[in-house]
Design a protein around this nucleic acid. Structure first.
Lengths: 128, 128
DNA sequence: CAGTATCCCCGAGGATACTG
DNA sequence: CAGTATCCTCGGGGATACTG
């Protein structure tokens, strides 16, 4: 269970990728695509609250990073599909457990019940 | 491997927690604390590039969420320790695989080599 | 349908100075 | 040492309008 010191030097590609992935909409888009290929309009609905500009920007970033694949079919009306690349799928595999944990624990955390969980392992903590 | 539709409704506690965790410094602080208890000054060094204001703010948010425990000892000079709560440790368990993956793949992603990995599963993709 | 193009605002976040 | 307090900037991100 030793994590052996994960370091993120500040001027490092890892910081950039971290920023892309943890950008406001990045995680949500990636998770939405975990279900499979989706069209633009489906994504807009799946990622509740995202604006057109932000969806476009997020998708472009993820595509440039090689995490998402854009498949535009030259028909009228336009038909564009987005899906995870193999690399993106790997990433989402690591993202999903995190998302499920957050969904499962969010209510307790926000309601403040989390402080009740500071049990045996805690003693004099945060006397503050 | 079916993820069975993870949904994040926009007006939901899960979005708030997600924002806290994926805040610019949230992930980095949590990962830094994965190694164990750390003092303020150690965190400042461990989380390279963080300002005092942002470190304080991030720690306060994480503490309010019950993910981090603050242990202030009333001595002079002041001595304050931060560590993960049991809940925070659970979260970090899900965070660590993600961070390690990002560290391992960041260079390839940023350099653009990622697009080379679009192999057999891809065919006509992103004619762009 | 699937996007750009613009304009604009607010607040996340940085720099600096100060304190118990 | 471990923080506040204050000021200020910059760009993330929203609203709206337009297009192939």
């Amino acid at each position: 269970m030793e994590v052996s010191t994960i370091r993120f030097p500040s001027a490092c590609p890892s910081r950039i990728v971290l920023d892309h992935v943890t950008s406001k909409w990045g995680v949500l888009v990636l998770v939405a695509l975990a279900e499979g290929t989706k069209r633009w309009s489906e994504l807009r609905r799946a990622v509740e609250g995202v604006s057109e500009k932000m969806l476009a920007q997020t998708l472009q970033t993820l595509e440039r990073d090689g995490l998402v694949i854009r498949d535009a079919r030259p028909v009228i009306p336009p038909h564009v599909d987005y899906r995870l690349s193999p690399l993106g799928a790997e990433l989402v595999d690591r993202l999903t457990p995190l998302m499920e944990w957050i969904l499962a624990n969010a209510d307790a955390i926000i309601s403040g019940a989390a402080r009740g969980r500071i049990d045996e392992t805690t003693s004099v903590a945060h006397a503050q």
